[in-house]
């Protein structure tokens, strides 16, 4: 079954990619609040949130003397 010499490495690579992606997700705190994150999709407001940089400029503008 020579084709497995091809298919098995491919599958192992896919598995390794999956594993590293899982590690990334752990590092980036994806699992820190599973209850809250399940609820977030239910929020009704249908608009994007302001980007982080935009917030910073709003806030510093306001608090600057």
């Amino acid at each position: 079954m020579t084709i497995l010499a091809f298919l098995i490495p491919i599958t192992l690579c896919m598995g390794a990619v999956g594993l590293s992606v899982f590690f990334w997700s752990l590092r980036s705190n994806q699992y820190d609040d599973l209850s809250g994150d399940a609820e977030r999709i239910l929020f009704d407001d249908d608009r994007p949130l302001p980007a982080a940089s935009a917030r910073l400029s709003i806030t510093t503008k306001e608090t600057a003397p």
């Binding site: 999956g18 899982f22 699992y31 599973l34 209850s35 994150d37 399940a38 609820e39 999709i41 239910l42």
Partner: peptide
């Protein structure tokens, strides 16, 4: 499904486990 039903997934953790 959760959006239309207005309720969160029963077990979010399980959805991640079954994904893997």
């Amino acid at each position: 499904l959760p959006k239309r039903a207005g309720r969160p997934i029963y077990s979010y953790r399980l959805s991640i486990l079954s994904f893997w």
